[in-house]
Amino acid sequence: MDCNAKQEQLSLLLDGETAALEQADLFAHLGACADCRDWFDTLARLRGAARRDREEIAGGADDLRPPLPSLSALPSRRPAAQRIRGAGWTWRLRVPLAAALAFALLAAGALLGARWPLLAEGAGAIAARGGRAPVVVICSLPDVTVFPQGVGQ
């Protein structure tokens, strides 16, 4: 008699995973085989012990609270309002930069218009003849502060 195969089926029986016909066969085997009966009884008893153990130890979690205060610190799902507040420093930089750039462009345009009033007209004429229009590059120099001699030494 192959008790190893029977015990594999008894494991399924313990979990209610066997068909009725197989069950009848297994119970007949249990009636005849002391080793398999011991195997099955021990595991059934330990199942009861596991359920009792579960109830006894679970109380160790009764004082735990959901980790909700930590949720605001999670990077993946911040509320929209918080995201905007969090990004404030970039906006604080971007707005003055954009204003400064616009001012520089306007100033450069005004300067060019006053000094070379025919520049735009000339560029149009060159383009009409199939040539390349002149490209004006605007750049800014860093501020340089010149201290009088002796200051800052």
Binding site: D53, R54, I57, A58, G59, G60, A61, D62, L64, P66
Partner: peptide, 13 residues
């Protein structure tokens, strides 16, 4: 609330 006890039992064992 529903799963803290089962999870704790799982973790302890």
């Amino acid at each position: 609330e529903r799963y803290r006890r089962p999870l704790y039992a799982f973790g302890l064992r």
